[in-house]
Amino acid sequence: MTTPYEPGQVLRILIAEDDIDDQEILGETLDKLHPAAEVVMVSNGLKAVKNLEASSDDALPNLMILDYNMPELNGEQVLEALSGHPRYNRIYKVVLSTSSSPYYKSACLALGAHGYHTKPTSFIEFEELISALLEACTNHQF
């Protein structure tokens, strides 16, 4: 088994988030913590699925951060759309939400999410969470 991100390899991150403020803070945090990462930001779940479908296997993201509550397809629905396709198994998938609903969390984890986190309320908390996600993505085995 190998890790999807190894030193010298480009780290690709797909973020599906409809809130502009959250897009900005995620982008700034990633730029600070891993400025060499290739970050693609889309505004809804359908665009996330279409982005993945259009990507070659070599260009798939290593990390996908999904907002739970998005238009078109929510985070759970995106995970459901990806769950039947083995080519997406190597992607480290995480859901962020304003909701701490145990149902949402268990449903997302059952569909292949590697984590479900309530959105932090401060930049420092966002930085800590993103740092932990980058480390988990780096150590992810598939």
Results as ranks from 00 to 15, higher is better:
42 V>S: 03
91 I>K: 06
93 K>L: 06
87 R>C: 07
75 G>D: 00
65 I>V: 14
52 L>M: 12
62 N>W: 01
142 F>H: 06
78 V>G: 02
97 S>I: 12
134 L>V: 15
27 G>F: 12
51 N>D: 05
36 A>Q: 13
111 L>V: 02
17 E>Q: 08
43 S>I: 05
116 Y>C: 03
22 D>W: 02
109 L>I: 08
97 S>W: 02
73 L>W: 08
39 V>G: 02
79 L>C: 10
108 C>H: 14
64 M>W: 02
135 E>W: 10
41 M>I: 04
111 L>N: 10
135 E>K: 14
122 S>L: 08
96 L>Y: 07
22 D>V: 06
138 T>H: 14
135 E>C: 14
2 T>L: 01
29 T>L: 02
51 N>Y: 09
34 H>P: 13
85 H>L: 05
121 T>G: 15
56 S>M: 07
78 V>I: 01
77 Q>Y: 15
14 L>R: 04
101 S>E: 12
25 I>G: 05
100 S>Q: 03
25 I>K: 01
72 E>Y: 12
46 L>C: 14
72 E>A: 11
33 L>W: 07
29 T>M: 08
99 S>Y: 10
12 R>E: 00
137 C>R: 03
52 L>S: 10
53 E>I: 01
136 A>H: 13
4 P>K: 01
111 L>E: 01
130 I>T: 03
133 L>N: 13
7 P>V: 07
116 Y>G: 05
54 A>W: 00
90 R>G: 07
49 V>P: 13
55 S>V: 01
13 I>C: 02
58 D>G: 11
21 D>K: 07
19 D>T: 14
1 M>W: 03
28 E>V: 14
88 Y>T: 03
142 F>D: 07
39 V>I: 07
115 G>F: 04
108 C>L: 05
135 E>A: 15
111 L>Y: 06
70 M>C: 13
111 L>R: 12
128 E>C: 14
77 Q>P: 11
60 L>Y: 01
117 H>N: 03
125 E>H: 15
21 D>H: 09
86 P>C: 06
50 K>P: 14
122 S>Q: 09
65 I>N: 05
131 S>I: 09
129 L>C: 08
67 D>A: 11
83 S>Y: 15
60 L>V: 03
136 A>G: 13
67 D>R: 06
59 A>M: 12
65 I>P: 08
71 P>G: 09
40 V>A: 14
11 L>V: 00
100 S>C: 11
13 I>F: 04
33 L>E: 10
69 N>A: 11
9 Q>G: 15
69 N>M: 02
134 L>Q: 08
121 T>M: 15
115 G>K: 11
122 S>F: 09
112 G>V: 11
113 A>L: 11
36 A>V: 08
78 V>L: 07
135 E>Q: 15
55 S>W: 00
88 Y>D: 04
21 D>P: 05
141 Q>S: 13
132 A>M: 09
18 D>K: 00
99 S>W: 11
40 V>N: 06
35 P>T: 04
20 I>E: 11
110 A>Y: 13
53 E>V: 07
45 G>N: 05
